[in-house]
């Protein structure tokens, strides 16, 4: 059993911040071949059928989200597999961002958002009364659509997380490890004291990914992480995701069908349809979730096929 596994089964998110008993933060970066993978979803080996409960990181059961009285997303149930990349796709406004925010309780910060249903994280109810949302957000990291480095030096961007979490680590080491993992080290190692705003958009986004890694999360949520980037920077980030998949569970929202096909192991398709003739309110629903190869070659729902082939959305 490696450290990762033991950290997965750490104690519940107690309202008291867990400072002790946390396993050593930084795994030595996996000696990885930086293979720019060219294989497509179809050619990748599909997930092994073994589905022990240990493989399930999130178990989402009948989740609905309302903004005020307006439903944004209704009755979603699915599971998220460990160390897999799960992509959420679907037309604009179908509630993908709303849904991904449920996984680290960011919706709590939106005053009129209300989450119903159950989300279990390793058999722990994320929305239980004694769960501290701050601790949830540390264990489940997030990368946003627009790169959002802090207006500080690259170094300070990366030490903020460990500092506020009072992690007893060597900051220099955290900075180097996380930058190496985010494939940014070589580009910035000589200018760690420079303001992060001086980096290019793609570098900023990789910095944000590196920043998410500094607090040693198990899961990384990414809401359209490449939508502000050019194709080369996007390819960088995609390679990076494939690399991180060895150690992290990743959920990504994307509008880019090819991207979902290229990077993800599983794909969930959401839609927002008018429910009935006399009511034109729309709310998001999960249509289906399956292995990416299946979704893109032989989806079981007609609407998925239409969307993927560009006939709708």
């Amino acid at each position: 059993m490696d450290q990762r596994t033991s950290s997965d089964q750490r104690a519940a998110f107690s309202p008291v911040r867990l400072d002790t008993g946390r396993p050593e933060t930084h795994r030595p970066s996996a000696s990885s071949t930086d293979g720019r993978s060219t294989d497509t979803a179809a050619s990748r080996p599909s997930a092994p059928p073994k589905r022990s409960t240990d493989d399930v990181v999130f178990d989402v059961d009948d989740v609905s989200v309302h903004y005020g009285s307006a439903p944004a997303l209704v009755n979603v149930s699915l599971t998220i597999q460990r160390r897999k990349i799960t992509a959420f796709i679907g037309p604009s406004g179908c509630g993908k961002s709303t849904f991904i925010r449920c996984f680290n309780r960011t919706n709590d910060l939106i005053p009129n958002a209300r989450v119903q249903g159950r989300i279990h994280y390793h058999n722990q109810d994320l929305y239980a009364k004694d769960v501290d949302p701050v601790e949830v957000r540390r264990r489940i990291g997030m990368v946003f659509q627009k790169p959002n480095p802090f207006p500080k030096s690259i170094y300070d961007n990366l030490t903020f997380g460990p500092k506020v979490n009072r992690m007893k680590v060597d900051y220099d080491e955290v900075v180097e490890t996380s930058l190496r993992r985010a494939a940014l080290w070589d580009e910035v190692k000589g200018k760690l004291k420079q303001n992060a705003y001086s980096l290019s958009g793609g570098q900023q986004q990789r910095l944000c990914i590196a920043r998410a890694l500094t607090v040693d999360p198990e899961v990384i949520l990414m809401d359209e992480p490449c939508s502000a980037l050019d194709p080369i920077a996007t390819a960088h980030i995609e390679d990076l995701m494939r690399e991180l998949e060895r150690d992290y569970t990743i959920i990504i929202v994307t509008h880019n069908m090819q991207q979902a096909a290229r990077v993800s192991d599983r794909t969930a398709f959401f839609t927002a349809e008018v429910e009935s003739e006399n009511d034109d309110r729309r709310f998001g629903r999960l249509v289906e979730i399956d292995d990416t190869s299946k979704i893109f070659s032989n989806p079981s729902d007609r609407r998925t096929e239409d969307y993927i082939s560009g006939r709708f959305g």
Binding site: N104, T106, L109, V134, E135, R137, R138, R139, G141, M142, F144, K146, N148, P149, F150, P151, F160, G161, V164, N165, C208, R211, A212, T214, V215
Partner: peptide
């Protein structure tokens, strides 16, 4: 920008921090 607050909160910082 709102994004700076989001970035901090996503790292497990408290609103006060």
């Amino acid at each position: 920008p709102r994004e700076i607050r989001d970035g901090g909160l996503a790292l497990g910082a408290t609103p006060l921090q």
